[in-house]
C-alpha cells in the first residue's frame, strides 16, 4: 500500500458518498447516467468474484464488499425507488452500452494474465471500467451544464484512477518485477477520458467561485 493508492481508494469512496447523498437527500437522479452505474455494478461484481478465495488483505475484502453494495444500491435506487426512478430520463441516458460490454468481453477473452475463466472475467472488468464513464460524460455533454454535486462526483471518480496511475508508477520504481500492463493501459485510457472534463471543472471552480461546469 502507498499513499497514492490509499488516496485513490479514498477518492473512489468519496465519489460513492457524493452520489449516494445526491440521490438520497436530493431525491433526484437528474444528470446521473443509470447506464454508467449499471456498468460499474457489472465491473465490481465481476472483478470481485475473487472475494471468496483471494484474501490479500482485510482492507481489500472490506472495500470489495462496500463497492459491490454501493454500486448495486445506486442502480436499485435509480431504477426502482420512487421518486428517483421518475427523475431518470431514458431518452437522454441512452448510450448503447452493449457496444462497450461486447468489445470488452472479447478483449478480456483474448488479452488477460492467465487463461483461467476468472482471469478472463477480471481482464473484462478492467477494460469495462475504463470506458464505463462514457454514458455519464455523454449525458453531461447533452445537458451542457453540470450540476454542482454531479461535477464533484465525476471529479472524484476521475481522480481515483489518476491517483492509481501514480500508484503504479511508484510501485514500478520501488518493487522489482512489478508488471501490470493490463491495468496500466486501461487506467491510462480511463483517466484520459476525464481530461476534457477536468479542464472545464477546473475552469469553473477556479478562483473559488462555484460557477457551474459548462461542457461545450
Amino acid at each position: 500500500m502507498n499513499i497514492f493508492r490509499f488516496l485513490g481508494d479514498m477518492s473512489h469512496i468519496l465519489s460513492f458518498v457524493i452520489l449516494l447523498l445526491k440521490i438520497t437527500q436530493g431525491k433526484s437522479a437528474a444528470g446521473i447516467s443509470l447506464r454508467t452505474q449499471e456498468l460499474y455494478m457489472i465491473v465490481f461484481c465481476s472483478r470481485y468474484l475473487d472475494l471468496f478465495w483471494n484474501f490479500s488483505s482485510l482492507y481489500n475484502s472490506f472495500l470489495k464488499v462496500v463497492f459491490i453494495a454501493c454500486s448495486s444500491a445506486i442502480v436499485y435506487i435509480i431504477r426502482f425507488k420512487s421518486p428517483q426512478k421518475d427523475t431518470w430520463n431514458p431518452e437522454l441516458d441512452n448510450f448503447p452500452i452493449q457496444y462497450l460490454i461486447g468489445p470488452c468481453a472479447v478483449a478480456g477473452l483474448l488479452i488477460n494474465q492467465d487463461w483461467t475463466p476468472f482471469e478472463m472475467i477480471w481482464a473484462f472488468s478492467i477494460y469495462l471500467e475504463a470506458v464505463a464513464i462514457l454514458p455519464q460524460l455523454f449525458l453531461l455533454q447533452k445537458q451542457g451544464e453540470v450540476e454542482n454535486l454531479t461535477s464533484h462526483y465525476v471529479a472524484a471518480l476521475g481522480a481515483y484512477r489518476g491517483l492509481y496511475l501514480m500508484n503504479w508508477v511508484y510501485r514500478y520504481f520501488t518493487e522489482d518485477d512489478y508488471l501490470q500492463r493490463i491495468v496500466w493501459f486501461a487506467g491510462t485510457v480511463q483517466t484520459g477520458l476525464y481530461i476534457d472534463f477536468f479542464y472545464h471543472y477546473y475552469q469553473s471552480k477556479r478562483g473559488g467561485l462555484s460557477r457551474p461546469v459548462k461542457l461545450p
Binding site: 483471494n54 490479500s56 481489500n60 463497492f67 482471469e119 491495468v183
Partner: peptide, 10 residues
C-alpha cells in the same frame, strides 16, 4: 503454466 496471478489491488 499457471503462474499464480494474485490481484492485490481493488
Amino acid at each position: 503454466r499457471h503462474h499464480d496471478v494474485n490481484h492485490d489491488e481493488l
